[in-house]
């Protein structure tokens, strides 16, 4: 089984925002900008219950992609990547289950810790589910230009 290409892992570690694309009931791709949190094995994202339609889409169809396209969100790097994978929603504890990712989240968005302390002001924003994405295939554009074919890496056989 191949591992995540190093530059893509770096992009995931650096990106302030990535585009999560899920498939809705009509077969349409629906794209949500979210913070990608990568632990070396999985890409995690979190979703407030307020904006939880994406979770319903994932429950119905686990196939998703995560794209890093905006040089502004990765400190000026121009390379780009799309990671296709299988997602599962972890919702055992919407109140606090997601907080295990807080250190990675805080590294990208330091203000989140301040806002979490003010939880009383916006309680539902902090009722969250985790989206755990197991990468299956990576498309990587080293120069960022999609007019050049991407390097494609299969990480494992696709889920049945």
């Amino acid at each position: 089984m191949a591992t995540m290409p190093t530059p893509v892992a770096e992009l995931l570690g650096k990106a302030l925002v990535a585009e999560l694309t899920v498939v809705d009931a009509k077969g349409r791709p629906v794209t949500y900008p979210l913070i990608p949190l990568y632990d070396g094995d999985h890409v995690y994202m979190t979703s407030s219950t307020l904006f939880s339609r994406k979770l319903q889409h994932i429950d119905a169809n686990a196939k998703v992609s995560v794209s890093i396209t905006d040089p502004v969100s990765v400190g000026g790097r121009t390379d780009r990547a799309t990671i296709q994978g299988d997602a599962r929603v972890i919702a055992e504890d919407p109140h606090g289950g997601w907080e295990r990712l807080l250190p990675i989240w805080e590294a990208k968005e330091p203000s989140i810790v301040f806002f979490l302390k003010q939880r009383v002001a916006l309680p539902l924003f902090f009722e969250r589910a985790l989206i755990e994405i197991t990468p299956r295939r990576v498309l990587y554009w080293s120069d960022g230009s999609t007019q050049n074919a991407p390097e494609i890496t299969s990480l494992t056989e696709e889920a049945a």
């Binding site: 992609s65 794209s67 396209t69 960022g144």
Partner: peptide, 13 residues
């Protein structure tokens, strides 16, 4: 963005 033949979304700038 579109959904490829394997059912996964594809996105490209």
């Amino acid at each position: 963005n579109w959904v490829d033949d394997a059912g996964y979304p594809v996105s490209a700038a």
